[in-house]
Amino acid sequence: MTVNGLAEFLRTRRAQLTPEDVGLSAFPERRRVAGLRREELAQLAGVSVSYYTRLEQGQASHASEAVLDAIATALRLDDHERRHLHALAAVRPNRPRRPPAERVDAATQDLLRTLADVPAMVLGRRTDILAWNDLGHALLAGHIDRHAVDRPAERPNLARLLFLDSHTRELYVDWPAKARTVVGHLHHVAGQFPDDALLAGLVGELSVKSDDFAALWSDHRVKPCEAGSYRMRHPTVGPLTVTQQNLVIARSPEQSLCLVTTEDGSSAADTIALLRNSLGQRRDSASAAVAEVHHRLANPL
């Protein structure tokens, strides 16, 4: 995530393109490298082969915006990937810093409380789950302590759950699609915060513990989590299809509010209602048990 991060990104994305992808005639002889050759990419971008080679080898810095845009166009990058390329090129090597623990401010907590009928949670920039309402907890991670989010050292992390927790993996019918989305988001964040030691640690941990994560991370796809539809198989209430939308929190732009919605009148909406009712019944039972204890204490035999 320094100059070497730029070099790795360029090499990986070049390897994913073929001459046919960019309108070039393939050489008749057998190609010794995957994807485009450096000279082909340099030709498409309108830069010298020697300069582009130095970029890929991490030996050049201070590339102009015009050159980066030309390279991004040659690599067929989308808008998110183009911004990621610029962010990587702007990075100066620094020692990774351990940032302070993320906090959810009072206004965001108030907002979360008003969303009692919609599964919701607050995500930090590294996909740490900073807060959630009862319905969000029950839908996405009911097997985890509800109050773990209140203890910074024990907070669940969405990426870690997705790759290392069997319950979460089973929750998503199309797990690979959800996995690609989360890894693309982490790449996006890594470009914005290259000196974040906690993020680097998370990526390192998942790369070692999950071959799936390591393969997706090395692909260098970049895309922030915004919205997506997913089929789920919930262990308590059964199958449902939901849309997860991440909204940037105005007062804390590094955090996002993840809302889980369903199509109006759909069977999935009925499933969410069933889950909501089961939580209500559980709370009623707990309240009745507490009242019974208080009654016995107040009226000993």
Rank of each mutant, 00 (worst) to 15 (best):
A63H: 03
D174R: 14
G136A: 07
D110I: 10
H220M: 13
V290T: 10
Q109W: 00
D264Y: 11
D196Q: 10
T262C: 14
L6T: 07
R83E: 13
D196C: 12
D69V: 01
R126M: 08
L24A: 12
A215L: 12
N4Y: 08
L88C: 03
L164H: 03
H234I: 10
V33S: 05
Q43K: 05
M1A: 14
R125D: 00
P224Y: 02
E40K: 09
A120N: 06
V293W: 02
A153P: 05
R54Q: 11
A177M: 14
Q109C: 06
A106R: 11
R97A: 13
L36S: 14
L24F: 12
L115F: 03
A101R: 13
P100G: 12
D134I: 03
E39R: 13
I249F: 05
A268I: 07
N277A: 15
L115G: 05
G23N: 04
L111V: 12
R126P: 02
H86L: 04
Q281N: 11
R126I: 09
R251N: 13
L75K: 10
H143V: 10
T243E: 14
Q16A: 15
T18E: 07
T243K: 13
G142K: 10
V49C: 09
G58C: 15
S61R: 15
F27N: 10
A159W: 12
